[in-house]
Design a protein around this nucleic acid. Structure first.
Lengths: 224, 224
DNA sequence: ATTACTATATACCGAGTAA
DNA sequence: TTTACTCGGTATATAGTAA
């Protein structure tokens, strides 16, 4: 039983993040880090080497001062803890995400109407979706909330193959827009998407009178 | 230079908090805690003793299963980290608290007009307060935000004595209500108060046309 | 001033075990 | 079953120091 001691890494990462290391390289000597963490320069230097080894930070070792930034792997580690704290202190069961309506390119309709998905939507979401999706582009300030969603419970729609084409797994969460029940489809993590696709029993654009560019709030139910 | 290793304590506290230990005693054996923290039963037992020693948890050592809850000191430790994560991920510099206008009992006026306070208000807040306060009773869902405020920066007004009566320290934070600049006075922690007193250059009730029972939003500036 | 190696001191963990 | 002691092995920290 090895203790897998993430904690000492996260502590250092948090310090670096508070200096802005999530967004850009920050100049940070081992002595400064040591002071912040209440440890010696030597230990801080070692900690930095460990973080580098674990690909949690990247370093630009200049002649005088090294500059450090947090990798996406390191950011994930921090976010995971943040989400735990949110659970502890917020105990919220809904998350509101703001975004604007954008034009769909028809793929929504193409995917939703695939029988392989449609059957599962009906069974797992409890309604037969309208044959098309509403696309909501998230405001940039809301983007990080996708990670919160991905770390919570989701309704998982299994992928399938059809005519030699692969349709991947889809992860949904129940939601509502202006009190109309619906479900959001989480975008793939890898593509760094910022558009939520919303499936609904009704034609949301018509029902709610929405047009491209309108700003809306999607209320997502976390503990369904 | 002793490393003052809070981190291992916070990690255990977080685990306990996720089980509900902030709100009530939770049954938690040293083996279970050990499993959750990836450590042995022996080490978890030791960790529990350390947490007890540091008054971070309280324990009800029953015959079969011990029950543990987090003390207010332990909760503070967790909240402090939570606030760091909020800083990292939210980068917010204001906090909006909702509440309703309630009747003041005249104590606001009594206190504000004490010269010992008034002089400091003028000096440290930058305005001469109207001789009375607006009392805002927080919605119960907003109560926890007081702790966030208490952990951030405050403008501290020193207490004093006068005619044998003791006037305590007062902690203020700059804020605004409907774009009118003001400052909130944090209620004493010990009394578990849920009423914010708002001091302002103007008579807020008259200026904003507020009446008892009206719901308002107080925008509090965190990084003044 | 840096970073980071080596050697030594300290802290920590867990196996064995008692109550 | 519990909790928690002692003890020995190991991991971690720092002082001294090189580059």
């Amino acid at each position: 039983m090895e203790p897998e001691n993430d904690e000492k890494f996260v502590t250092a990462l948090r310090r670096i993040a508070l200096m802005g290391g999530l967004h850009d390289y920050v100049a940070l000597s081992s002595r400064e880090l040591g002071d912040m963490l209440d440890m010696s320069q030597q230990s801080a230097s070692k900690r930095i080497l460990e973080l580098l080894d674990g690909k949690l930070i990247e370093r630009d070792l200049g002649a005088r001062r090294q500059r450090i930034r947090i990798t996406s792997k390191g950011a994930d580690m921090l976010r995971k803890e943040y989400i735990e704290y949110q659970k502890i202190f917020e105990m919220k069961d809904e998350l509101v995400i703001k975004g604007t309506i954008v034009e769909g390119m028809g793929e929504g309709q193409y995917y939703v109407t695939q029988p392989g998905y449609m059957e599962q939507f009906v069974e797992k979401l409890g309604f037969k979706p309208y044959e098309g999706t509403l696309n909501v582009k998230l405001l940039s300030t809301e983007h990080h909330k996708l990670d919160t969603l991905r770390n919570g419970r989701t309704i998982d729609i299994k992928g399938f193959e059809r005519n030699g084409r692969t349709f991947g797994d889809v992860h949904c969460i129940p939601a509502s827009i202006q009190n109309v029940e619906c479900a959001v489809v989480l975008p793939r993590r890898s593509h760094y998407e910022d558009v939520l696709e919303v499936v609904c029993k009704f034609h949301l654009r018509r029902t709610l009178g929405l047009e491209d560019g309108d700003q809306i709030e999607v209320r997502i139910r976390l503990n369904f």
